[in-house]
Design a protein around this nucleic acid. Structure first.
Lengths: 300, 300
DNA sequence: GCCAAACCATGAAATTGATGCATAAATAAA
DNA sequence: TTTATTTATGCATCAATTTCATGGTTTGGC
């Protein structure tokens, strides 16, 4: 069996020229090397060096091993380098699951500085989960879950990173635009545009319309946030979105946002992760960055 | 330090699913594996598996090692395969040095069957030597020397493989063509065509003309055997070449060959090799094949 | 041609390290 | 709960590697 040590032995002897020098290089005695060589040659059933006096010349077999060494040793070393980076928490993978459609814009603000500080970490974002965000977390399909609905089960940790108000977005020219806040019945004759998810997962249904026993005239699904806002701007409907998100588009699209009910719908975004991962450097830093962006978004 | 064993360990566990089964596969106790893993993880400073109950899930680090294993293990095995072939004498390199210009035709007859029996052996032919054929043999530039001039020094073995008569070739229409044999003075007015080597290495000079104190009218050098014979055929000169070689061209080029002197010049081709290499299977077989072709050439 | 220096080989002793056994602990299934 | 399966660990043992001490060879300078 050719071992990694043998590859190192061959290269050391090739570089040093003599066994004695190679022994120094490998921090071994000359005797140890001599024994190793003898054993290796016995195992292989063929000589590795042709020993002409004190000169060493690689045999055909020896050359084969040296070729192998030249190819494999750097790969060993490269992997070991990666491993030390992993051990130091400088390298890994961060698969982010999103259970909050409009948060994508916010996420970009977090990921951007993260990528700069952690060049060794591979970042991926997933939005579809067969068994929900929690399932994906448990199944190791994702490492961090961005969600407004934390489930405080054992094994996972949820950390609030971002608070916002869910507001109704309407066009400036919309009849409701003059109000400070809307009530459920005000939407009676409106077209409501939402992301294509089940109504019970939409706060405007579960926390606003449903409790009041109200409905809307029509309910449309749109996937992309920008298109949704364009539609609202064109007076084709109203939508419920985070206040900060509306703010960034308010001027350009001539939009207005209104409080939903007297109290408003207050939301919190949480980052969920497996307990085991909480202390991984780059994951902790991701949480830190996520908390930081809250202020930036508020001002922006 | 990641060792080859660790690569095997990772793959075995990956294939078997559990440590216990992997231990069986590696012909080790479950305990030994458990110890090995613990030590490896300590050395690396990072876990290789995430042990969730009795389930094993590779960590980021573990995946890196497994990737390495998948790439390196086959290369180890491939080299070991080659090494066993070398050990069995089925593989190697056979660099043939030629110190006998006209023997090239003969060599082809030897090499051809050799290549079929020894697909693992790389054959190369060299004709130029800085320090002569013997030097090339000693310097490991060649493995076998084809020469009519053996030097029985210690360290090398010369084996005669092929006897032939060096004869004078003339055109059928040449005045000398009617003779059975020529004497040195007969060449007094001839143009002699030879390979471009020093005259003392040419038998027709050293063994025929020089002892008799004779010369030729003109001496021309030509590298290629076929062209040389074409020239002779065209009556542009005479040449000294092996009888069997002339025979193969005699009809097509209308050539005649004559004995040089009463006794003729008898030559022997030897194969020289380093003593160490004599017992290598494919080299011994090369010698065997070389001896065999003698008969074929005689008849042909 | 001799001598000193450098190098490699070898045997025996010592140390290191890996392995297996026995068993405990943990987990999954029944 | 019980039972079966799997992993972890302490300890004794055994094997293998290393070193030490030494002897034999080769090389190069004088």
């Amino acid at each position: 069996m050719i071992e990694r040590f043998h590859l190192q032995l061959l290269t050391a002897v090739d570089e040093c020229g003599t066994l004695t020098l190679a022994a120094d290089k490998l921090h071994l005695s000359q005797s140890a090397l001599s024994h190793s060589i003898k054993k290796l040659e016995q195992q292989l059933g063929t000589a590795v060096w042709e020993k002409d006096g004190r000169k060493l010349r690689l045999t055909q077999a020896g050359r084969q091993i040296l070729i192998l060494a030249r190819r494999l040793l750097p790969q060993f070393e490269h992997t070991e380098l990666i491993l030390t980076q992993i051990a130091k928490g400088q390298r890994g993978s961060l698969r982010i699951g999103m259970e909050c459609h409009p948060c994508y814009q916010w996420l970009l603000k977090v990921v951007s500085p993260f990528l700069e500080t952690w060049p060794g970490v591979e970042v991926d974002v997933k939005q579809e989960f067969q068994f929900g965000g929690m399932g994906a977390l448990f199944d190791y399909d994702i490492d961090v879950l961005v969600t407004p609905d934390p489930l405080f089960k054992s094994g996972v940790t949820f950390i609030p990173v971002f608070d916002f108000e869910q507001r109704l977005v309407v066009s400036q020219s919309h009849p409701l635009a003059r109000l400070q806040q809307v009530e459920p019945k005000d939407l009676h004759n409106e077209t409501l545009i939402t992301y294509p998810v089940e109504p019970q997962r939409l706060d405007i249904f579960s926390q606003f319309l449903a409790p009041a026993g109200c409905t809307v005239k029509r309910h449309r699904h749109i996937e992309a946030t920008e298109i949704m806002l364009q539609m609202v701007s064109a007076g084709r409907g109203v939508a419920a979105l985070p206040g900060w998100l509306v703010d960034t588009y308010a001027k350009s699209l001539q939009l207005v946002s209104l409080r939903l009910g007297a109290e408003g719908i207050m939301k919190h975004i949480y980052l969920g992760m497996r307990n085991n991962d909480v202390n991984i450097d780059y994951i902790a830093d991701f949480v830190r960055l996520a908390k930081q962006t809250e202020n930036q978004v508020d001002k922006g």
